[in-house]
Design a protein around this nucleic acid. Structure first.
Lengths: 256, 256
DNA sequence: CGTCTAATTGAGATGAATCAACAATCGTGG
DNA sequence: CCACGATTGTTGATTCATCTCAATTAGACG
């Protein structure tokens, strides 16, 4: 099944010197400047230097960023690109738990945990902001804003999980796919409030299937139907919602 | 479908005087004394009075303890009995997200949220420990142990959600039911380390079905098979695991 | 171009849902 | 203590959504 044999390497090499000057200046132009943790992080800029050094790191699609149950070494935040969190079952099946979009931590629970039970893999080329784990925890422990931001993020993630449970437990395949598309669209819009007619949609049908508890073949059929009915257009990694109202209907109303 | 028409009343009446003396002394004999938040709460006992007043409250099966999207008024912790968290879909279907066992908060995210998207209903008669919401938040904000405890609890809940996503997305009905039973058993054991051959199992087949994304009819068949094969015994609200190894096999190995 | 991966399409199998009837259990009041 | 209605669980027959297997086409990329 999905076998990428690459070995996970630490994102931040041992003994690497955090390039805080360079990293620090980058935040100023970052479109995520005001989003969630980044807002807390850049709060005192440009007057004070950030208390927490940051390092940039680029990764390549299909690269394994973390393997389930290994000790987590650093804290990584997505600056550009997408990744996904997944668990591999003994029978070779894969369940994707969630996708990491720009502004997300790869593993938010690193705040409290040294290990998690899922793995993380890059879906596109990515640029990550990497923090030292202990420094990050110390920072969160003493900075009230950072702490609140992490609490907010973890609870938001739990709410997403719960929404997904409802999808998997009680909705049919068309409903699931429609909601998936709409959710992704609105998440992207929250991060970049400029309204785009279309968004980047780098996941393959296999990813959608593994996230929604379906088969790639079945996802193909559902997307085919959506296209045929003029609800969406999806090609070359770009998605556009053509008939939002009817897609909403198929999705069984708003999510909340 | 599941229509209990009772109106949710605040667990703690307006203006009620917290009976802190009485409540305080009760913790000493509570079997949950050393479990999670309770451990943090009773940490300074019996030398100092608890900083956070507590009130006992009893409720009755099927009673609605919280309705989705209403403002949360108090913080409630289960002392005895069970409840479940669920969402009701427009089509009348119900998805149970999780069960609240002794020692659990009904709504852990009350630490940060004033509202959540699921409802909570008592499954058995319950005894609850109720805190004032603002006092609780103030307490958590200033007590490092309480804070860590809440972080631990919220992240643990997220991990449970993720495990459930894997179940719903990628496992068949027998696997789901077997895991459900084993998980419940081990949760009960964590709370009461005394080894019992059987545990209280108050949920109806409809609850199991709504938790696992199945039908009550199908759950009946699966449980029937389990009984026939001598894996479990389940009657009169009491469950015993007879053949743990084979049940584990059906469940597709350990959960982690 | 040729090769590899991803997507489409069809035919048939299957696990779980649905529909329906019935049996067992529980709680309650007489 | 029994009789009753209400709730819960069991079982069979049938249907349906989704999976599986398999063959084919379309894209991506050197």
């Amino acid at each position: 099944m999905n076998s990428s044999k690459s070995v996970a390497k630490p994102l931040l090499e041992e003994g690497a010197v955090p390039q805080s000057e360079e990293a620090w200046s980058e935040c100023a132009d970052c479109p995520l400047r005001d989003y969630r943790f980044c807002a807390a992080y850049t709060r005192t800029m440009p007057n004070a230097a950030p208390r927490l050094p940051r390092l940039a790191k680029d990764v390549v699609p299909r690269q394994n960023l973390y393997r389930a149950k290994e000790p987590i070494r650093q804290v990584a935040l997505v600056r550009e690109g997408m990744a996904f969190r997944y668990v591999l079952l003994p029978d070779g099946n894969r369940q994707i738990l969630s996708f990491c979009l720009p502004g997300d931590f790869l593993i938010p629970s690193v705040t409290v945990r040294d290990t998690v039970h899922f793995s993380v893999q890059a879906l596109t080329p990515m640029r990550l902001c990497v923090f030292d784990k202990e420094a990050f925890r110390a920072h969160v422990a003493e900075d009230r804003h950072a702490m609140m931001s992490m609490a907010e993020i973890c609870i938001g993630e739990k709410e997403n999980c719960e929404a997904r449970i409802v999808d998997l437990g009680r909705r049919g395949s068309e409903e699931r796919v429609a909601r998936f598309i709409l959710d992704l669209m609105s998440e992207m819009q929250r991060r970049d409030p400029v309204k785009h007619a279309s968004i980047s949609f780098p996941m393959r049908q296999q990813h959608i299937a593994d996230a929604l508890g379906l088969t790639q073949v079945h996802v193909s059929r559902v997307l085919g139907r959506f296209r045929k009915e003029g609800l969406i257009s999806l090609a070359g990694g770009t998605l556009a919602i053509i008939d939002a109202p009817n897609l909403q209907n198929l999705a069984g109303g708003q999510r909340d």
